[in-house]
């Protein structure tokens, strides 16, 4: 079973829910797919056994073979190649590494080379198999990195995916193929707005989802009213608590220090297991 934890809005407690759930369940595979700003390792403190480079294939243009016919430039949908009368200009930061330029070149002048876009860290924290992605700064192909990470998923296990914020391509790459998605939000206008956007994206992707309402006692009841009206399940509420905020600030999992929440997390996971069985 693959359960992703996402939020729409950043900073609502996605990673908090994900790492505490992982610690509670113990025997899970955990993927930190927030590759731009990975944080789960701060809490899970895995020992990293292996670091793999994540690469994509980028074109290399051999100007001695190039006849400047412009076929590659015409085929490139990202305008990453400009073919000039006797020269060629390639803009690496616009390239998506699709490979079409190599394919269409009649002269064999375009070959491909591996380019590092990030790293994938594998390790363990107790029984948790931890896989963390880290995109290199200045890179744009986070979706490719996430896709590479997800090839490591062991479908026989319970898999938790910490997804990036937002509702666009990287969010989609992370949650795509999940059996269930836990959306974490808070009862403020920002939280409501972004929760609805994420919910809309999940409906398009046909992934069932429910809400964890974090800092549930700040703000107002708008989000609860919407959930009641739209028949969206509120899986759990976590009130605002200075102690939770403090434990978060020093990178500790609050479930270990505040065992009263364990039953709530357990109950939530049982609900999700039931729903995904159907």
């Amino acid at each position: 079973m693959i359960v992703s934890i996402a939020s729409g809005k950043g900073g609502t407690g996605k990673t908090t829910v994900a790492v505490n759930l992982a610690a509670l369940l113990g025997d899970v595979q955990f993927l930190d797919c927030d590759v731009e700003e990975p944080n789960a390792h701060i809490f899970l403190k895995p020992s990293i056994g292996k670091t793999d480079l994540a690469t994509v294939l980028f074109p290399y243009f051999d100007k001695t073979k190039c006849v400047f016919c412009g076929k590659c430039s015409g085929a490139c949908q990202y305008n990453a190649i400009a073919v000039l009368p006797a020269n060629i200009a390639f803009f690496e930061h616009m390239c998506h590494g699709c490979g079409v330029c190599t394919y269409v070149c009649p002269e064999g002048a375009v070959t491909e080379r591996e380019k590092e876009i990030g790293r994938i860290l594998s390790g363990s924290a107790g029984k948790i198999n931890f896989i963390g992605g880290r995109m290199n700064s200045g890179e744009i192909l986070s979706a490719m990195l996430i896709k590479t990470m997800k090839e490591l998923i062991d479908p026989s296990r319970t898999v938790l995916i910490d997804a990036p914020p937002g509702t666009s391509c990287q969010f989609v790459s992370a949650v795509h193929g999940s059996d269930y998605c836990i959306l974490v939000s808070e009862p403020t206008p920002f939280g409501v707005n972004d929760f609805l956007l994420a919910a809309e994206a999940l409906e398009k992707l046909k992934i069932p989802y429910g809400l964890v309402l974090n800092r549930a006692d700040i703000g107002n009841d708008e989000i609860r009213d919407i959930c009641a009206r739209k028949n969206i399940r509120i899986l759990m509420e976590i009130p605002f608590d200075m102690e939770i905020a403090r434990l978060y600030s020093v990178g500790e999992m609050f479930l270990e220090k505040m065992p009263q929440y364990k039953e709530k997390f357990k109950a939530m996971f049982e609900i999700i297991s039931e729903i995904t069985k159907k």
Binding site: G10, E36, E37, M135, G138, I140, S142, G166
Partner: peptide, 10 residues
């Protein structure tokens, strides 16, 4: 700006 350090931030 958006969160993160990827293409939207750039």
């Amino acid at each position: 700006g958006p969160p993160g350090i990827g293409c939207p931030v750039m």
